[in-house]
């Protein structure tokens, strides 16, 4: 049992965590693109939809605007950056991080000590897939049972069963229909296996367990709203877009007055506080970009 207060959140992550959630993308039908998003169009200047996806390419357009405030905290090729900081399995984020990124408040990550066990991930009950599977199995076995019993009682077999028996005995394996059926069965089987093995509910971030018998999960949307609201309190911040992923929270702020460095420093400390206030078992690491409003 690890004490979450004893080490930065990066080290508390079990190995293979990234693999699991990677597989669960298609399973939950959501994928990583649906990270909790919230735009803070307080000024109405920014289009909210286009920048929501937690996609590194999304940032490529911004990086080239030559805005110093943006470049400072978000240097270089976004793909490169993702390799250095976004890998997720890098213990304590001690990898080759560009020096200015040190200001991104990862050292604020000290979660307040809360006794109790680890906050486990929420597992979806998978009701709908189970319902559909059960329905199909029931229909198939019921129909066959009825027909077998009917034949035993002296009636004629239904036409479909005669036909299926004939096709099974005559079509070779490399027949198109057989191939298509086999491929479909294998794909469905694989999908069911993935559904059965992955937790799903990627929208829910597990919170640190408290002293009582309470188990809490915070929606990524809610976490994004909390961060956005706090960021908007910083003087000089005109609008904020926050996208909270399972590992990383991207905050992009536009400032319309004050020096960008000052705004960024304030945002750093405010968001560090807010991030601790989320009470998450593994708080997502923050990546912060501040730029001047009206550019790019």
């Amino acid at each position: 049992m690890t004490d979450p207060g004893a080490e930065p959140p990066g080290t508390a992550r079990p190995p293979g965590g990234s693999g699991t959630s990677g597989v669960s993308g298609p399973a939950s039908g959501a994928g990583s693109g649906t990270s909790g998003t919230a735009s803070g169009p307080a000024s109405g200047t920014s289009g909210s939809g286009a920048h929501r996806a937690a996609d590194p390419r999304d940032r490529g357009g911004d990086a080239g605007t030559g805005d110093p405030g943006h470049r400072d905290l978000d240097p270089g090729d976004p793909a490169e950056r993702d390799r250095t900081t976004g890998g997720g399995d890098d213990p304590a984020g001690a990898g080759p991080v560009p020096p200015l990124n040190a200001r991104v408040p990862e050292e604020h990550a000290e979660p307040g000590p809360r006794p109790g066990g680890r906050g486990k991930r929420f597992w979806s009950p998978r009701r709908l897939p189970a319902l559909i599977t059960a329905l199909l199995v029931l229909a198939g076995s019921g129909l066959l049972l009825y027909d077998v019993a009917a034949v035993r009682a002296g009636r004629r077999a239904m036409a479909w069963r005669v036909r299926v028996a004939r096709e099974l005995a005559t079509r070779p394996l490399d027949d198109t229909w057989v191939l298509a059926g086999a491929a479909l069965a294998a794909a469905l089987g694989l999908w069911l296996l993935v559904l059965a093995a992955t937790p799903g509910l990627r929208q829910v971030l597990a919170m640190r367990p408290g002293p009582g018998r309470i188990r809490a999960g915070l929606d990524r949307d809610a976490a994004a709203l909390v961060l956005r609201d706090r960021a908007l309190e910083v003087p000089g911040v005109q609008s904020v877009r926050v996208a909270v992923g399972r590992r990383r929270a991207k905050v992009r702020a536009e400032s319309h007055f004050r020096a960008l460095d000052d705004v960024r420093d304030d945002l750093d400390s405010v968001l560090g506080d807010a991030r601790r206030g989320l009470g998450l078992q593994r708080p997502p690491r923050l990546s912060l970009a501040v730029r001047r409003a009206g550019k790019g």
Binding site: L184, A185, G189
Partner: peptide
Amino acid sequence: RTTVNRLLMGLIGAILFVVGGSVLVSA
């Protein structure tokens, strides 16, 4: 219910995958 759902779905998934895969291997 979560456990039962996942066990049964895993079982059915494994059967489908093995049957479909073995047909494809020979085909």
